[in-house]
Design a protein around this nucleic acid. Structure first.
Lengths: 343, 343
DNA sequence: ACTGTTTTCCAAAGCGCTTTGATAGCCGCA
DNA sequence: TGCGGCTATCAAAGCGCTTTGGAAAACAGT
């Protein structure tokens, strides 16, 4: 059933039917009602491509997710982020199209998405510390919101980010206040902006307290359970092992706990742990007293906010780009305790 | 830059330019070359909505992902599944649109996707044991492939599934052969078809060996780390605790290990564990000798295969629906061992 | 030179919608 | 009665592409 058929059936013109359905005022209420009823009866929904052609709007939004071919890893954060966005989109009538793109052909794919015109705007995931995509997109003139930031960008652009540096500064400070001096960091890949900032926060807290930064306690990599396990295992073999660690994701924290269990150590007593917690739905760390002490920032909410920002940009072009910086909550759980007395 | 402009620039008609770019034979090779060069020079890419309108094809595929509002959980399997599909789609020129839909308005959303015409086909995730969506979609006449199966469906439909029943039958049999008699099961929600079949496989293996099925050892729920933890903790408190458990996902298995560590027990010695392993990228269980003994079936490959099936259905309508049943590998890891001697 | 093929290109219709500009019909007011 | 100003509706153009049905040009065969 299409507009033409519906109009014929009603004995009206396409114009009137279209207007009735789209809420324009120049149609009598009785007529509008009649049209709406018929539309419902025949399950009429306007063809989205035709509508897009006519209006110049695609009514869909693209999420561009980088996939490193080498690691074949999709950051599990995306699933929750998208869940957050999705609800906002469907309320506003947008579709969500996902584009996994490999390291190499990033710019080509952006250009393509733009030229093909199948999205009205983009969400950019996983910005690197230095990320050419952003300048490129800005030149392309398509609205976009970055989840995270890139550090060295000349132009202004819209982003939503967590205050990674402060979160890790606070977490490290907490550990220091508990008496810890040997504090490890198991981070994401530090070419990624978020991981770099977390590292800075960690290093800054140590520096503020005059604690030297020991490279033997620094690890970075894809945030898998295995990374946490290996890093912790290696650190425990050191002559002077850490009494506390900071981890960049709950998945890493699970690996850390695993290594500690293997070594017969108890989390929160022998070694303290503070993790960042994206509040992923299947890795909830939300008991009355959570298992892990954590800096928590629900990524699902980031997704919803980013979606709202982007829709605003699309629907009111010409506004200056918005920036949202969210603070993480520091949640006390059972994985932290005072530093054990040496010996 | 659009077709018209490109054609004018080249001094050709739109027809010829269109044909040149789409590989039709009735255009001179020299002309084609000239057109292609110009297209590249101006970054011309045909507007996908206009193309869709003209051809009646959307060149995009929808993934419908059920979200239970109650649990607010997105199964992490989807991320990897989609990664597998995505590559196939982009090679074949399709876009991927994602539709998270809540329990209630399933059918409405399918109908909408169909009427709006923004997808050529659908992948249906998370089928329930009894799932009205499938009959509904079949009536709608839109090509679709189900990831998993529903049990009681009259009509024939395309699906790709793992042999859940056999996998869990084999896993349970392995444990029985190792001397275990008290074997727990921590499963997904058993209204879901895959979980129901796993339960059947487990129960069948016990029955084959004349071992009674103890309801105290049966758990089912959203497959989170917490489910594994709580279930195992509870089972360890039983008068006659299990010496082995089967889990439906590695995330559950992590929770089980956690509970065991808390109880001071060693995996593979005190209690054996076999998990199903979807081979998720950030929870790899792939050491030389894997941590967990597991039934492994890489969900990313399921995604790719499903995508290929669906594209075949779209491009050759009228063929009978394909079915793919994959066997899981049984991988021996360090989490299994002979049943401990009683006492 | 004349016809029949083949090659190469083109004009125009059509996909399903929105939107502009026009047209009736009706009201009130002089 | 006639005219301006509304209201409710419509016809038609246009969005950017594909594709049908020609037609001109080039070529081949007699």
């Amino acid at each position: 059933m299409n507009l033409k058929q519906l109009a014929e059936h009603l004995g009206l013109s396409q114009t009137t039917v279209s207007r009735a359905l789209n809420g324009y005022p120049e149609v009598r209420e009785a007529t509008r009602k009649r049209v709406q009823d018929a539309a419902r009866e025949f399950n009429y929904a306007p063809n989205v491509r035709a509508k897009g052609l006519a209006t110049g709007r695609a009514m869909s939004i693209g999420h561009v997710i980088p996939v490193s071919k080498k690691h074949e890893i999709v950051n599990p954060v995306f699933a929750d982020f998208i869940t957050g966005s999705s609800e906002v989109y469907s309320k506003a009538g947008y579709d969500l199209v996902i584009s996994l793109v490999e390291d190499g052909d990033q710019e080509q794919r952006y250009r393509e998405l733009h030229a093909k015109g199948n999205v009205d705007g983009l969400i950019v995931h996983g910005p690197m510390r230095v990320d050419s995509r952003i300048e490129f997109l800005a030149e392309l003139g398509m609205p976009f919101v970055v989840h995270g930031r890139a550090s060295d960008i000349g132009s202004d652009y819209a982003w939503i980010d967590m205050n990674n540096r402060r979160a890790f500064h606070r977490a490290a400070t907490l550990l220091i206040e508990l008496g810890h001096r040997r504090i490890g960091l198991i981070n994401g890949i530090e070419a990624m902006d978020f991981a770099y900032r977390r590292r800075q926060g960690y290093a800054g807290a140590l520096e503020d307290c005059g604690i030297p930064c020991d490279p033997d306690l620094l690890f970075a990599g894809e945030m898998t359970e295995n990374l946490g396990f290996c890093a912790m295992r290696d650190m425990l073999l050191l002559d002077d092992p850490p009494t506390a660690v900071l981890t960049s994701s709950i998945i890493i924290a699970l690996g850390v706990r695993h290594a500690m269990d293997d070594a017969g150590l108890v989390l929160g007593r022998d070694v303290s742990l503070v993790s960042h917690d994206d509040d992923l739905s299947y890795l909830r760390n939300r008991a009355d007293v959570p298992v892990f002490t954590a800096t928590r920032s629900p990524v699902r909410e980031h997704g919803a906010t980013a979606a709202e920002m982007l829709i605003r940009m699309i629907e009111n072009p010409g506004q200056p780009p918005e920036h949202v910086l969210l603070e993480a909550d520091l949640i006390l759980g059972r994985s932290t305790g005072p530093a054990p007395r040496p010996g």
